[in-house]
Design a binder for these strands. Structure first.
Lengths: 130, 130
DNA sequence: TCCTTATTGATAATGATTGTCAACATCATC
DNA sequence: GATGATGTTGACAATCATTATCAATAAGGA
C-alpha cells in the first residue's frame, strides 16, 4: 500500500511553488536550503510518482535532463515556455488535437499521442536590457 | 576550414539508410559492423554537425538519449513517429505554425519556436500478432 | 611534395539518473 | 497506545550517454 510521508509532501509543495519547469537536482537543492534533510534519490522517486499519477508534467531539456512542473490533473494540455527564465503557461489546443488525429490516420498510424510545446521569450524577458 | 573526411561521409550515408530515429550509439554499432573502425566520439561529433547544419533532425527520447534522423534540409517540418518500430514520416503543419505564433503572441511571448511531434503505431505495428 | 592545422580516436572525466540495502517510519490491527 | 508487516528513505555505488583531453594523423592549399 502507498504511504504518506513528509518527504513526498515536501516535494509536492516545493513543486507547487515553482512557476517554471525545474530539474530534480534544482528541487533537491531548494529543499535542502529549506532545512530539510531530504535525500536526492527520494526527490527523484517522488517526482516520478507525481508524473505517473498525472499531478506533474515532465519533459526532456535539450541538455538531456528531465524537467518537472506541477500541473492541473486530469486535463490534457500543452505548454508555453520561456527559453530564458523558464516561466511556463498551460495552454489548450483543441485544433491541434484534431490535427494530430487526422495526420496520424492519413498515414495509417493508430493510437496517436503528441508532444506539442511552444518555446519563446516571455514578456519580461523580451524587454531590452536597461 | 572544414575538411571532408571519409568518417563524416560514412556517418551521413549511414544516417540516410535509416527510416527511423536512431541514437549515436546505434549508428556507431552499425558502422562498426560494416567493418569501419570509426570512433564513437567521431560519430557524436559528426551527428552534432549534421544537426547544426540542418541536414539532420534530433530529438530527446523519453529515456534521455539523443536521437537523430536524416531530413530534407531547408524546410521546416515535423514528425510522425511509430512508438514501436521507430518508423518516421515527415509531416507539414502550416495550421500548427500559425496557431503557435498566435498563442505565443496572446501571452506576450516573442520569438516563438515549437516542438510538435506525433507518436503512434504505424500500419504494420498496428496489425494484431498472428 | 611540404606545411599548417582541422580531425580523429582511445581513454578519462563528467553528470544525471538508477540500483542496493540496512535502518527507519507508516498504518492497519490488536 | 502498543505491535508488527512492509513500504519508504538516504547514503553510496553503479550505470550509461555524452563530452573533454591530447597525441597522432590526414586534408588541402601553397
Amino acid at each position: 500500500m502507498k504511504r504518506n510521508t513528509w518527504q513526498r509532501e515536501a516535494v509536492k509543495s516545493a513543486l507547487d511553488t515553482q512557476d517554471a519547469f525545474v530539474s530534480a537536482q534544482q528541487l533537491h537543492s531548494a529543499l535542502r536550503d529549506d532545512g530539510t534533510g531530504i535525500g536526492l534519490a527520494t526527490v527523484y522517486r517522488a517526482l516520478a510518482d507525481l508524473a505517473e499519477s498525472g499531478q506533474a508534467d515532465s519533459l526532456q531539456s535539450t541538455e538531456g535532463e528531465a524537467l518537472y512542473r506541477a500541473c492541473t490533473p486530469g486535463q490534457h494540455h500543452h505548454h508555453l515556455i520561456c527559453r530564458n527564465c523558464g516561466l511556463t503557461v498551460e495552454i489548450e489546443a483543441d485544433a491541434v488535437e484534431q490535427w494530430a488525429r487526422k495526420v496520424a490516420a492519413e498515414n495509417g498510424f493508430t493510437q496517436p499521442e503528441h508532444v506539442v510545446d511552444v518555446f519563446g521569450l516571455c514578456a519580461d524577458c523580451s524587454k531590452p536590457a536597461p
